[in-house]
Each structure stands twice: as structure tokens, then as C-alpha cells.
Design a protein around this nucleic acid. Structure first.
Length: 438
RNA sequence: GUGGUCGUAGCUCAGCUGGUAGAGCACCCGGUUGUGGUCCGGGAUGUCGCGGGUUCGAGUCCCGUCGAUCACCCCA
């Protein structure tokens, strides 16, 4: 029986998911991120240190727990990888070299109501860079490039990375004279759901004047693929030091992305991100054609998350929602894989007595990196071929005293072959993932 | 956590106002005593999501529950 929100994929789907994980890992390492895994649980007070996400957290309880036991603080499963990482950095600051860049690919848990692309247990592939005391803002420009690199090499729809900076919003609202800037950010962030009129209404109930609401909406409408958003903001006539600072940072991110990966990164002044530990740049990523499914890759800069009072480790990170990405695409049947098993070659079995010889052939192929299995039984060759065909295994190997042959069952071509030297075309070595979307 | 829709064979679905479950595709066997995919013939298949209730009788009505999905919330 399935448990709501805890997806279990079929092997073909898992192969696709692993393809994405492998791509992410390989790319992260190419950019010099060190691998890390943190424990699944954190003390509850750690998890709740920033933000009021309490209701989402799953708690860990021992079945035989002593009711009177109050020694340890309650443990909760982590709901992202950034908070545990911040804790890890504080704990191990003495052993790490800064700036420290690491990747972490792990399950996360949130106690939410599941729907397509939203799960209670899901996989995130997260990268973060932290430094001691200060963090140069060029790192904020680097992260979208890495994500573009990961996703650009996968058979998925085009992506659109939307970037904003909370300083822009905060500074603009402050300059505008709105007192509760954080609440204003939350309201404007809902613009896609409730529309400009809805935002104006909520801002009004926050105490904003009509003129203020109008300008806030005008800001939210700004969306450019380059630095031209600055002029548009300046035209609105609001000034504030924080706004100026945020605009400069945002220019850097957008222009860097435009130079290295044009057409995928946009300054989008309406996005804000829910998690409230972000203090500067924030990212959100849409799959083009799947915008309704939400962001598949989000993050931002946090200046105070890893801070012990004495020391501060500002950081910036971005997290790819692997489960959401595949879940959304599976939901539309948009991904196919060439076979449901890793096997490239099936060694046919003429008779049960031939199994030792077949095993030797398989071993020779495996030794050269070719995934091989031996037929389960010495059935008619037609059946053995069908066994391979159903799983998508491309090659069937026929052992013979007169010399082995190998058949590509897709084309029907059959050629003489020796297990010590034959190799499949490189594109057949591993299951191939294909995407189909309009 | 709140509310809506849905849940019949592996898949897609049919099943009229309650009368004891069906089709197509897929699958298995044979034709084709060992090289599949076509064709022909034959065959198996369901705790009708689960539990309870109403009824002489429930896939069909009622309640609950689980799951999928959507909206809110939130977010990967």
C-alpha cells in the first residue's frame, strides 16, 4: 500500500532519476564542490531557529520512549539541506577551509499535503558556498550558471531562472514609506495567484495608500533579461540606500548569467521566496511549459543563518528539487528510457550445461564495463530474445562451438563476436533517457 | 491542517433507475521440437482501494478510512 507523499518509482523511473542525480553530482564536482552528507535529524530548536516552519517538521519519537524523559531535545527530520548545513558549518568551522563550497544530495521531509510535484519525502540536490565574516557577491552570480549547466545537459524542457534581491524589495518599500516590508513582500509574492487587484487590496489592508500600492505593483511587473531593469526601477522615483545596493547586486547576477548562459536568467522583481532566512539574492526556476508546477530549483543568499553570535558565516545556496522535477515530468509522460534494466547484453543459454561457459562470457564482458546477464533458463531462443526485448536489452549473445555471435535485436543484425574484444556502440552502454515535450 | 473531484483485470476504460463483472491492448500456451517482433487458434486474470452500514441482494446507495489529484496554505 502506498503512503501518501512518499513516492516509490518503478525501475525505469529510478533510472531516469539516477541519470539526473549523476549529472548533478558530476557537474557540482566539476565546479569544485566537496561532497557532504549530514544526518537526517536535527534538534527541533535548530530546525525552528529561522522561520515559522514548525508545522512542516516531522518529529522522531522512540516507540518505547519514557514519558518522563525530558533529557534530550526533540529531534525532527530536516526539511531542507541548508539549515543542517549551516549547523554543520558552525560546529566544524575550525576544520573547514573558507570559502567552503559543498554539495549535498539527500532526502528531505515536510509534513505537507501532497500533490503532483509536492511530496512529504523528496530528494534535493543542494550546493552552497559559505565564507567567514563576509561573502563576495560574485558567488551569487556563479550559482545560476552551475544550475544551467546541470539542467542544460539533461533531456528536460528549457528552464527559466528568475532572480531577485530582497534588498531591492525591502529598500523600495522602505523608501516608499511602507512600514511592514516583510509582510508587503509576502503579499506581492502572491501576485500570480491573486492578481494585481488582489495584491492592491491586501496592501491597502496593510495600511498602504493607493499610490504606494500602485508603485509596489509597478515594481513587481518589472522583468528583464539584462540590466535594463535598473532604469525601469529608477523611473518609479523611489530612493533608498538598500535599494541601490540590491540593484547593483542584481545587475551583477543577471549580467554574468547573460554573458555565460544567455536566455535563461531573468531579473524578476516580483519573486520573494518563502523561507525567510534569505537576505539578498533569491532564485526560483521554472520549467518552460510547466510553470504551474512551481519552482524546481530555488535558493538565495543568507547572511545570518550560520551565526553563533561571535562568528558569522554568510552563505549562498541553491537547491534542485529532484523528486519534484521527475514527478512533474512523469506526470505528463514526458520522459522515456531506452530500457528498464541496466543490462546491455543478454547471454543466451543453448542448454543448461552451457551455463558455465555463458558465465565466462558474461564475466569477460563485465570486466570491460558492459552490463551483462545470463538468460534465466535454456528456453527456446525465441523466448530468450523475447526476455531481452521486454526489458529493452539491446543485444543477445549466442554462444556456439563454431564461434559466438551477437545480435542487435532492434535491427536484427547479427555478427561474429568475441567476448574479449566486442563492444556495443557507446550510446547503448547505458540506458538512454529521452524527453518528449512540446 | 481545510475543502472539492476521483479509485472496476498489468494498462485504458464500460457496467443503464441496486439483481451476483465485461471490452480493447498487454500477458501465457500452441501453430513454428530452440532466433523474437506479423498472422491464426486457444487460455488465465479481478478480495470492483479498504472497513462498516442500509437491503432478500451493493461495483452501483450511506458513513468512515486509505490512495491519486486539484484549490487554500506552503514550497523542492
Amino acid at each position: 500500500m502506498a503512503i501518501s507523499g512518499f513516492p516509490e518509482w518503478m525501475p525505469a523511473q529510478r533510472i531516469i532519476e539516477q541519470t539526473i542525480i549523476d549529472r548533478a553530482r558530476r557537474t557540482f564536482e566539476l565546479y569544485g564542490f566537496a561532497p557532504l552528507e549530514t544526518r537526517a535529524v536535527e534538534p527541533l530548536d535548530q530546525l525552528l531557529r529561522k522561520g515559522e516552519t514548525s508545522k512542516e517538521v516531522y518529529l522522531l519519537r522512540r516507540l518505547q520512549a519514557d514519558e518522563k524523559d525530558s533529557s534530550d531535545s526533540t529531534l525532527g527530520l530536516h526539511f531542507d539541506l541548508t539549515v543542517p548545513f549551516a549547523r554543520f558549518v558552525l560546529e566544524n568551522a575550525g576544520k573547514l577551509q573558507f570559502p567552503f563550497r559543498r554539495y549535498q544530495i539527500q532526502k528531505c521531509w515536510r509534513g505537507e499535503r501532497p500533490q503532483e510535484g509536492r511530496y512529504r519525502e523528496f530528494l534535493q540536490a543542494d550546493i552552497d558556498i559559505v565564507d567567514r565574516d563576509t561573502l563576495p557577491s560574485h558567488y551569487e552570480a556563479e550559482l545560476p550558471l552551475i544550475i544551467a549547466d546541470v539542467l542544460g545537459g539533461l533531456p528536460i524542457p528549457k528552464i527559466r531562472i528568475q532572480v531577485n534581491n530582497r534588498k531591492v524589495l525591502q529598500g523600495f518599500y522602505r523608501g516608499l514609506g511602507i512600514d511592514d516590508q516583510d509582510e508587503a513582500i509576502r503579499i506581492v509574492d502572491k501576485i500570480d495567484k491573486i492578481g494585481p487587484a488582489g495584491v492592491a487590496a491586501e496592501l491597502a489592508s496593510l495600511g498602504a495608500t493607493e499610490a504606494q500600492a500602485k508603485l509596489a505593483l509597478a515594481l513587481a511587473e518589472i522583468s528583464t533579461p539584462d540590466a535594463s531593469f535598473v532604469e525601469l526601477v529608477e523611473k518609479l522615483g523611489v530612493t533608498d540606500p538598500l535599494l541601490t545596493e540590491g540593484l547593483a547586486e542584481l545587475v551583477n547576477v543577471v549580467e554574468t548569467a547573460r554573458a555565460h548562459a544567455p536566455g535563461i536568467c531573468f531579473a524578476e522583481l516580483k519573486i520573494a521566496r518563502g523561507l525567510d532566512y534569505y537576505t539578498g539574492t533569491v532564485y526560483e526556476t521554472q520549467l518552460v511549459g510547466f510553470e504551474k508546477s512551481g519552482s524546481i530549483c530555488s535558493g538565495g543568499r543568507y547572511d545570518n543563518l550560520a551565526s553563533s553570535g561571535k562568528e558569522t558565516f554568510p552563505g549562498v545556496g541553491i537547491s534542485l528539487g529532484v523528486t519534484r522535477l521527475v514527478g512533474v515530468l512523469f506526470g505528463r509522460d514526458a520522459l522515456q528510457v531506452s530500457r528498464s534494466v541496466p543490462t546491455c547484453v543478454l547471454v543466451a543459454l543453448p542448454a543448461e550445461e552451457d551455463r558455465p561457459a555463458a558465465d565466462r562470457i558474461a564475466a569477460a564482458l563485465r570486466a570491460r564495463g558492459i552490463a551483462t546477464e545470463v538468460a534465466p533458463a535454456a528456453a527456446k531462443f525465441g523466448k530468450q530474445i523475447r526476455f531481452a526485448e521486454r526489458r529493452g536489452i539491446p543485444f543477445v549473445w549466442f554462444p556456439s562451438p563454431e564461434g559466438d555471435t551477437v545480435k542487435d535485436i532492434r535491427s536484427g543484425d547479427q555478427v561474429d563476436a568475441a567476448a574479449a574484444s566486442w563492444s556495443p556502440p557507446s550510446e547503448d552502454l547505458y540506458p538512454a533517457v529521452r524527453g518528449s515535450f512540446g
